[in-house]
Structures are given as C-alpha cells and as structure tokens.
C-alpha cells in the first residue's frame, strides 16, 4: 500500500523530505512563533467557515445573527470566542514573529522574499482585522470602522474615492456591510492563502538557518583556534602584523559566510 502510493504519487519521499529536514535545535522555541501564526490562521479559517453557517451580512439581521450565535447556537460562544481570541493572539504573535525576524537579521540575502511576503501577510491580516470588526454591526465595530473610513478619506488626491469605495456609496448602510463582508470573507482570505504558501515554500527553500546564533559554538571554536594561531604567529614573527591580520580575518569570515548562503 505504501509502495503503491509512493509509486503513484511519490508522497512518501516528499513526506520524508518534509519531516526529516534538520532544523535548528538551539532556538527551537523561538522558531515556534511562525508555526503558531500558521496555526492561528488555520483556526481563523475553520471558525470563520463555521460562523458563516449562521451569520447574515445584512444591516437588519447581522447583529441578530451574531447574538443568536452567542446565545442560542450550541457552542456558539466557543466558536465565535475562538475566532475572536485567536485573532487577538494572531496579531500579538505576528508582532513577536516579526520582531524575532528583524532582530536576528533573518531577512537578509537570500531571504528577501520571505520578508516581503511576510510584510504582505501582515498587511492582509490587518485588513482582515479591520473589516472583521464591522461585521458584528454593533456600536464598537461600527464606530471603529467609521474612524477607519474617515482616516481613508484624508488620503491625498484619492480620499473621497477611498471613503466611498469602502462605504459602497456616500453613507454607511447596507452596501458598507456587504462590502466589508465580501472583503473579509473572500477577498483577503483568498489573497492570504497563496502568500502563506509562498512564505512556507521559501522557508523550506532557504532553510531555517538564517542566524549566526545557530553557529555560536562553532564560531567560538573558530575564534579560539584563530586566537591560538594568532598567538603562535605573534610569538614567531614579532609584534607588527598582529592587528592587521585580525581585521582581515574578520572580513574573510563574513565574506565566506555570505557566499556560503547563495
């Protein structure tokens, strides 16, 4: 059976390739932030699909349907709770994930596209958070969206167009809710999915080892060795070229490191 699957799809090799790739051991917990983000987005998709079984995107029924989900539907409080809380956690985890990436310099060559798709994903998630808030059609969501739309209306040159595009007219009403619903439920998730795919593919392509942190022991050993060599040479040659050598070594190391990554 396994052989048959392997012959027809090559899935076993793919899975082994996927599962047994060596990954950093030192920073393992730091590297769970990315997978946590993925997990929370999956939760968003799942609970979002479930909420659509009861949610109605019309101004006269939206609030009622959310109220129904919260108070009448079995586990409605849980399903909507997971959607709400995982969205909040998602933004926090994305912030941490970005900070980790930034401070460890993991966006550097050859990982520029990882960073760019990451920023696109961040913007998409912010868009999802903004549009999702209005769907409840309650005071909190409505007025926060009003402020957001008004901010858009201050865009130079295109302000009026932006505001009326988001409103679906020149006042807040049925069209506004319909638009935010379409953007929140189809447009942005549909855009999110391929970028997640690209982000993960690039991660696999370039590997997780983007950080000097993972080479600490080896670098320490190298430096120790170099220091000893330096010392030995100093003993032999006399004093003059010690400092110069040191500078050259550092440069070489970085160049070697760089070409190594390509």
């Amino acid at each position: 059976m396994v052989d048959w699957m392997e012959d027809r799809t090559g899935i076993v090799t793919q899975l082994e390739h996927f599962l047994y790739e060596p990954v950093p051991k030192r920073g393992a917990w730091l590297y769970t932030l990315g997978s946590a983000t993925l997990f929370l987005i999956v939760l968003q998709f799942l609970t979002g699909i479930l909420l659509l079984f009861y949610y109605v995107p019309t101004t006269d029924h939206a609030w009622n349907s959310v109220y129904y989900i919260m108070n009448e539907a079995y586990f409605g409080q849980l399903i909507r709770g997971i959607h709400y809380w995982s969205a909040n956690f998602l933004l926090a985890v994305i912030g941490l994930h970005m900070a980790r990436t930034f401070f460890s310099g993991s966006y550097k060559a050859p990982r520029e596209w990882n960073w760019i798709t990451g920023v696109i994903l961040l913007l998409l998630v912010i868009g999802l958070a903004f549009t999702g808030y209005l769907l409840r059609w309650d005071q909190d969501g409505f007025w926060a969206s009003v402020v957001g739309i008004k901010i858009g209306s201050y865009s130079p040159f295109i302000g009026g167009y932006v505001a009326n595009f988001l409103l679906g007219g020149d006042v807040a009403g049925p069209a506004t809710l319909a638009r935010f619903f379409a953007i929140h439920v189809w447009l942005l998730p549909a855009a999110l999915a391929p970028f997640i795919g690209i982000h993960l593919y690039l991660l696999r392509r370039h590997g997780e080892f983007g950080n000097q942190f993972e080479y600490t022991d080896r670098l320490a050993k190298l430096h120790e060795q170099q220091r000893l060599e330096e010392y030995a040479r100093y003993e032999l040659d006399g004093e003059e070229d010690g400092a110069e050598e040191d500078g050259r070594n550092g440069e070489d190391r970085e160049n070697g490191r760089y070409s190594d990554r390509e």
Partner: peptide
C-alpha cells in the same frame, strides 16, 4: 481641505 488634495464630507451619514 488642502485645495486640490483633499475635500471633507461627513462621509458616514
């Protein structure tokens, strides 16, 4: 608002 750049309306109501 800024002539040629922005205009203001209540936009929401």
């Amino acid at each position: 608002g800024i002539p040629g750049l922005t205009t203001t309306r209540p936009h929401v109501v």
